[in-house]
Amino acid sequence: MTAVTPRGAKPQKALSPRNIMLYGALVIFSLYYLLPLYVMIVTSLKDMAEIRVGNIFSAPVEITFQPWVKAWSQACTGINCDGLSRGFWNSVRILIPSLIISVSVAALTGYVLACWRFKGSEVFFGILLLGAFIPYQVLLYPLVIILRELGLFGSLWGLVLVHTVFAMPINVLLFRNYFVALPEELFKAARVDGAGFWGIFFRIVIPMSLPIFVVSGIIQVTGIWNDFLFGVVYTRPENYPMTVQLNNIVNSVQGVKEYNVNMAATLLTGLVPLVVYFFSGKLFIRGIAAGAVKG
């Protein structure tokens, strides 16, 4: 019998300098991002009296959900006092059509640019990408005029149109690069099998491209939900999205500053993107990685 000898790579000591560096850095970064979140959560659960006397890092002595209720349904802006709920539903009504239309148009455009090249399609794609580098501010006023001429200024659909247009460069790029990497012979086989433009798109391309749809969807949900500028510029107060409503609540100058309500309102506003990330983060990473490797 021979003695049992260790096999495989030499085990690393848990406290090697490399690990200390690595985990140290990770902990610091985590704290950097999590600390503000912690402060927001604990503050939103305290009442004003406790906030005034206490330390901002201390846990609430007496947990109260009153600030959350107030933020949702009673907080006042300069104009009305029905809280964030109004903005929330506005945002939902903006988000859903913008999301569906922008992702569909981008996917279709990417599909054409990847699989049905036409004369000048590369030039078209180049110009589209250029759009990603034009600062929004430059386009704000021209867009006001365009929307006015279209009779859409101030309406929800005008904002949907703006979101769709601004989504194009990055999302078309995503879809095109993903589709280009799909095996070319698959398209040939489908054409021999009699599938046309739409048949190939719906029956071959889309079923193979779930990850990239998730990526694009997440980018759009967060982008549209977090948008403030377009919301404030292109809609009227009754259609203001949640971010604008939040700003108006937080910045309203009447009375005392209710930190707990403000924190609760901010957390409520951030909840949607957070939930989306939480549930589809894995697919998101997969889609991004697939694009990065193949594109």
């Binding site: 095996p183 012979e185 698959l186 040939k188 086989a189 054409r191 021999v192 099998d193 009699g194 599938a195």
Partner: peptide, 14 residues
């Protein structure tokens, strides 16, 4: 292609 009366087999199976 689908109207030419051909069937095709590819290297990558497709």
């Amino acid at each position: 292609p689908s109207k030419r009366g051909i069937g095709m087999v590819f290297q990558s199976y497709a």
